[in-house]
């Protein structure tokens, strides 16, 4: 009886941190690694602390390639979709910057994808990133029809912003959040993905 109650107590304490582990179908994230040169862009866009902020365009193929990362990646990948016109996106951004600071050195890749107009690629988007002190690679999705891009990321996603997805080192989607993130929940999912044996 005591064992049960101890287990139950622990379970209740730990339950908010228990997100993630159930494997889901990852086939669609693995397929279609087309070589269209966006692999190169990935490295270019990886800003360092001192480098100027450069936002690169990405299309559906580039997005597909980003998600179906080559085998050498082996790091969990966090992706946040946002826009400067999206209020909850702006509100949650400082939390995302803090998460990037904390976890990048511990093995997390973090990329953000802006849904702003392409005319903002040199102005509004980098300006916002600068204000936030953000240094994670950021792309601007430039597609005429967003349906395919949304599908490539997650069939369950309606396209509502913000949206945040965590893929483990194997490329399996292990966590998703539509709407403003809950930092403790996201951190727990990241910890879990980082601690998982590849």
């Amino acid at each position: 009886m005591k064992i049960y109650s101890t287990a139950l107590t622990l379970t209740l304490i730990l339950s908010p941190f228990a997100f993630g582990g159930c494997p889901t179908s990852s086939e669609r994230f693995q397929q279609g690694s087309t070589r269209d040169g966006s692999g190169e862009t990935t490295r270019d866009a990886r800003a360092t602390e001192s480098a100027p902020i450069k936002v690169s365009e990405i299309n559906t193929n580039g997005l597909r390639e980003l998600l179906g990362r080559p085998a050498q990646a082996k790091r969990p990948l966090l992706i946040n979709f946002w826009a400067t016109w999206c209020e909850p996106c702006r509100e949650e951004f400082p939390d995302l910057v803090a998460i990037d600071r904390e976890y990048r050195s511990r093995g997390l890749d973090f990329v953000t994808i802006s849904l702003d107009d392409v005319s903002d690629i040199d102005r509004g988007v980098p300006q916002f990133l600068r204000e936030m002190g953000a240094t994670m690679p950021t792309y601007l999705l430039n597609v005429v029809d967003p349906e395919m891009a949304i599908s490539v990321v997650d069939q369950e996603w309606s396209g509502a912003l913000p949206a945040t997805f965590l893929f483990d080192a194997k490329g399996t989607l292990v966590y998703r959040r539509f709407g403003r993130i809950k930092p403790p929940e996201l951190r727990a999912a990241i910890e879990k993905a980082l601690n998982a044996k590849p």
Binding site: P88, I150, S151, G159, A160, L161, P162, G179
Partner: peptide, 10 residues
């Protein structure tokens, strides 16, 4: 069915 980006319903 077809999707596009938009704002999350609060």
């Amino acid at each position: 069915e077809a999707r596009a980006f938009g704002c999350t319903i609060k």
